[in-house]
């Protein structure tokens, strides 16, 4: 009896495992059906990781690529621009997605490891500064005012500190986390490497920032354009005056570069060695450049002018030689 029960248990456990494994293999045989259609089938892996801002574009590209090359296994990670570069430096990945250009110390490490790489631009994003919907006094800010707002001066900041006619109430700050490229970019252009206000709420999840600003009358925050454009009715956008009049971030002003200095390009960095040695990486990279513009628009970003993609393609051609 005892033995029977032990065997029953083993059988149940074994059954579960068999079902699990069985599921896996069944599904793969189904998904492999599209193979016959396309010609020049490639195989192998393409490993990409990096910015969570760029992730939706890369996910879209990978999704489309699977339809043409089902045997190439593309994986897209989302460990942040900095995290992506760390893996790129270690040689774990073929492509590093970034929402800011590579930093000096990162490129020094890449040189040290002998990793040669090529920078490719994918799309534009406009970092949008937003306030609460009920905020009726703020319409635009100059870059200097932005700096006054966000750079830490050791004191609690009130709206009246920025412009005397504004209310004497404490400002609540919402910012992306320090691991994100969005923070890095803001840090470089606005904060100019000075510390950010101490009581800012930092979050790696931009939806948390949206909710924070939405629920707090004295809030101000910033994040990628896609998060603003999906929540237009819940937030108030602040135009930015860079000395040439206040400009609101829109599709047009970001694309033309008029929305400055907070328009930023999104990048992917490809390892030259991967392109030269792995046919599937070369093919995939070309596919990225050819489709990034259109797919970026679909997921809420802004495509680059056509000649930028042509430049990227030329760079890639150089590598393949």
């Amino acid at each position: 009896m005892r033995r029977f029960k032990f065997m029953a248990m083993t059988a149940v456990m074994g059954g579960v495992i068999a079902v699990a494994v069985g599921c896996g293999s069944n599904d793969t045989s189904n998904s492999g059906k599209g193979n016959e259609a396309a010609s020049n089938q490639l195989k192998g892996e393409v490993i990409t990781d990096g910015s969570s801002t760029v992730f939706p574009i890369m996910e879209a590209v990978a999704e489309e690529y699977m339809a043409t090359q089902p045997d190439v296994k593309v994986s897209v990670g989302s460990s942040g621009t900095g995290g992506g570069f760390k893996k790129f430096i270690a040689g774990d990945t073929d492509l590093a997605n970034a929402s800011r250009p590579v930093k000096e110390e990162e490129s020094a490490l890449l040189d040290e490891k002998g990793v040669k790489y090529t920078e490719l631009k994918l799309a534009f994003d406009g970092i949008s500064i937003v306030a609460n919907k009920d905020n009726d006094f703020i319409d635009s800010l100059t870059v200097e005012e932005l700096q006054k707002l966000w750079i830490d001066n050791g004191k609690v900041k009130k709206w009246s500190d920025i412009r005397p006619e504004w209310p004497n109430e404490e400002i609540k700050f919402y910012s992306p986390g320090t691991d994100s490229g969005t923070y890095d970019y803001f840090n470089e252009v606005i904060l100019e490497e000075k510390p950010m206000v101490e009581n800012a709420t930092l979050s790696e999840d931009d939806n948390v920032l949206v909710q924070g600003v939405e629920g707090d009358k004295n809030a101000i925050g910033f994040f990628g354009y896609a998060y603003y454009s999906e929540n237009k009715d819940k937030l108030k956008i602040i135009s930015i005056d860079n000395g040439k009049g206040a400009v609101e971030p829109t599709h047009e002003t970001i694309k033309s570069g008029e929305y400055a200095p907070l328009s930023r390009p999104l990048y992917t960095y490809v390892a030259n060695k991967s392109v030269a040695e792995k046919e599937q990486v070369a093919d995939y990279t070309q596919f990225i450049i050819e489709n990034a513009g259109e797919l970026a628009e679909e997921v809420g970003y802004i495509s680059l002018p056509e000649e930028e993609y042509q430049k990227d393609l030329d760079k890639l051609k150089e590598l393949e030689k």
Binding site: G24, S31, A62, E63, S75, K87
Partner: peptide, 16 residues
Amino acid sequence: GIPMFIAFLPQTVMDT
């Protein structure tokens, strides 16, 4: 370093 997006299924324990 497990990816967030893949569009294939693992076949062995050595796959991602």
